[in-house]
Computed example of a mutant assay.
Amino acid sequence: MTIDFRPVILAGGSGTRFWPRSRKARAKQVLTLDGERSMIQRTVDRLQPLAKPEDVWVITNDLLSDTICGQLEVVPDEQVVCEPAARNTAPAAGLAALIIERSNPDAVLGMFPADHVIADEPGFRAVIERAIQVAASGETMVVLGVTPTRPETGYGYIETGHVLEGGMARVRRFTEKPNQERAEQFVAAGNYHWNSGIFIWSARTLANAVREHLPEMTPLLEEIAAAFGTPRFQEVFAENYPKCENISVDYAILEPRSAKGEHHSNLYCLPANFGWNDLGSWAALFEHQHGMQVNTDEQGNVSESTGSLAFDARNNYVFAPNKFVALVGVDDLVVVETEDAVLITSRHHSQDVGKVVKELAARGRKDLI
């Protein structure tokens, strides 16, 4: 039996993590941070062997939609759905499920962030193919869990219980970003995985989960879904969607579902060891390129520039594509130059770049955000 697989690419974003390169209208997913293709183009590229372009859906916003449509010429424009207000992943995923359920409730949906890096793409597709088979077999939800390589405090974790054939395990619970001590305990325990943010389930399964766990939001999304493809769609979307709760899939559906107990939740975790990285900061991009030995010198500096020299300088990240860069006596810096701004921080503090964007907004500097 052929399974109808529909990838749903979650591509909202406010453009804060990679400021000053990223802006509201140029968020991370449309940037070429890792090669010649943008992050969202690479996301769709790696899914092409599993789904036809006309089966791909993208949930984004008005500021990014024109760029995304231009970058994704293979995806039908009507399936690039623009949120009238930012409402996190639960309303976005729920709306996609309710729209697709109306045409094929048995279709299997894959929820994919638009801005992740996958090193082993054949391995990625093999795991997704297995997840699709599991999700098509019944009212099951499959989450992809990455085996942690370090006690990372910036990721959510999945605790697994009983291990089934082929390494798939039942989910016990989800834990949001832990402190350092708890992260170390999770890694030592051996049955915790990083939450990749990739979920596989049928349209019916997700739609029913939305109805169960988000009863107040469901009528709003149902009305939007019913209007999809009609002249009233934009009007209904603009009226109803901002009324939806701002909440993630994890909080809204997966955590309450896991609370039923691992043998009653129908939640499964598949190990996802295919070189996953969510590139959540300049430091993460440095670590990725450093690990891949891309633009990296003998002292561990990563430089995207017209040329560089380093004297007693180690493990710095520099983005200055139109400049020659000299590093002297500095370690662990991030230096990013664009036409209208320069960022200088340490790799350790690169997660705090969002504070700059927040302060620029407070000062009314819309030209820089």
Rank of each mutant, 00 (worst) to 15 (best):
F112C: 03
L206P: 05
G364R: 14
V336L: 07
T16N: 08
I224A: 09
N295D: 13
V342W: 05
A361D: 15
T67Y: 08
E222R: 10
R172S: 02
A203T: 11
L327R: 09
R314C: 12
T147P: 13
K177W: 00
P49I: 02
K260G: 00
Y157L: 09
D66Y: 13
A90D: 06
E121P: 06
C244E: 07
F274I: 09
C82M: 12
V294Q: 07
G261Q: 04
S65F: 00
A207I: 03
N240M: 07
A90Q: 14
M1E: 15
A169M: 02
N277A: 09
K358I: 09
R170D: 03
K24Q: 09
Y241F: 15
M168T: 15
S22D: 05
A361N: 14
I369E: 12
E216I: 09
T205V: 05
F311P: 01
H263I: 05
L214H: 03
I3G: 11
V134T: 13
T89R: 01
S308R: 11
D120P: 00
P49G: 02
F324D: 09
E298T: 15
E216T: 14
N301C: 10
T230S: 15
N61T: 12
V294K: 03
R232Q: 12
I369D: 14
I68G: 00
F311C: 12
P76H: 11
E262L: 14
P49S: 07
I158E: 12
K28M: 06
K24V: 06
I68E: 02
V44R: 03
E101S: 12
I247E: 10
P113R: 08
A51G: 01
F233H: 15
E337R: 09
A183P: 04
T60V: 02
Y241H: 12
T230F: 05
M1R: 14
R257A: 10
P231M: 03
F112K: 01
